[in-house]
Amino acid sequence: MKNTSFWLVKSEPVKYSWEKFNQDGRTFWDGVRNYQARNNLRDMREGDLVLFYHSNDGKEVVGIAKVVKESYQDPTTDDKNWVVVDLSPVETLKKAVTLETIKADPQLANISLVRQGRLSVMLLKQEEFDRILELGNPQTL
């Protein structure tokens, strides 16, 4: 059985919002033009879980997606260096998890979102992924 990997992808809500993603139901993740982020796309496997982060405006994790098709040539360019994956939305977080909250959480001190803020596709440790979900889906007592 394959191990699930955990990722975070960023999108500016004015360019492609969580709401639009949910309306579409599926999309290919294009426009990545950073080699490290591209390599991360290549490493994604079907079934991997992905946090959806609104960058620039909002700066918050808003939902969970999953990889439904592994990397293939980016259809928006003829340059063979660039790839996309297909993602589908899974769940909207009850409460968006802001960058400020992430930075303030000691369990997330070494997360790539804080260390490499400009990277648009990043690998997360399962504990980091789970902690963000905890913060986004607080249990009411």
Rank of each mutant, 00 (worst) to 15 (best):
Lys2Val: 07
Asn3Met: 13
Asn3Tyr: 06
Asn3Ala: 15
Thr4Leu: 14
Thr4Ile: 15
Ser5Gly: 14
Trp7Gln: 05
Trp7Asp: 11
Trp7Glu: 08
Trp7Phe: 15
Val9Tyr: 02
Lys10Asn: 11
Lys10Ile: 12
Glu12Lys: 10
Pro13Trp: 12
Lys15Phe: 06
Lys15Cys: 05
Glu19Thr: 11
Glu19Asn: 07
Lys20Ile: 15
Asn22Cys: 15
Asn22Phe: 03
Asp24Lys: 09
Asp24Thr: 00
Asp24Pro: 04
Arg26Asp: 04
Thr27Asn: 02
Phe28Met: 00
Val32Leu: 13
Arg33Ser: 13
Asn34Ser: 08
Tyr35Met: 07
Gln36Phe: 12
Arg38Tyr: 00
Arg38Lys: 09
Asn39Met: 13
Leu41Cys: 05
Asp43Gln: 12
Asp43Pro: 02
Arg45Leu: 08
Asp48Ala: 00
Asp48Tyr: 00
Tyr53Trp: 06
Ser55Cys: 02
Asp57Gly: 07
Lys59Asn: 12
Glu60Met: 10
Glu60Asn: 11
Glu60Gln: 15
Val62Ile: 03
Ile64Leu: 13
Ala65Gln: 00
Val68Ser: 09
Tyr72Gln: 04
Tyr72Gly: 06
Asp74Leu: 07
Asp74Ser: 01
Asp74Ala: 08
Asp74Lys: 02
Pro75Gln: 03
Asp79Gly: 10
Asp79Cys: 05
Lys80Trp: 07
Asn81Trp: 04
Asn81Ala: 15
Val84Ala: 08
Val84Tyr: 01
Leu87Met: 02
Leu87Asn: 03
Ser88Ala: 15
Pro89Gln: 03
Val90Cys: 09
Glu91Asp: 00
Leu93Arg: 00
Thr98Arg: 10
Leu99Pro: 06
Leu99Phe: 14
Leu99Thr: 12
Glu100Leu: 12
Glu100Asn: 12
Lys103Val: 05
Pro106Ile: 14
Gln107Ala: 15
Gln107Thr: 04
Leu108Pro: 05
Leu108Ala: 11
Leu108Ile: 04
Ala109Asn: 06
Ile111Gly: 01
Ser112Thr: 13
Ser112Lys: 13
Gly117Met: 06
Ser120Asp: 12
Ser120Asn: 12
Met122Tyr: 01
Lys125Met: 08
Gln126Tyr: 04
Glu127Asp: 14
Glu127Trp: 00
Glu128Gly: 08
Phe129Ala: 03
Asp130Gly: 05
Asp130Lys: 12
Arg131Asp: 09
Ile132Pro: 00
Leu135Glu: 05
Leu135Met: 14
Gly136Glu: 08
Gly136Leu: 10
Gln139His: 03
Leu141Ile: 15
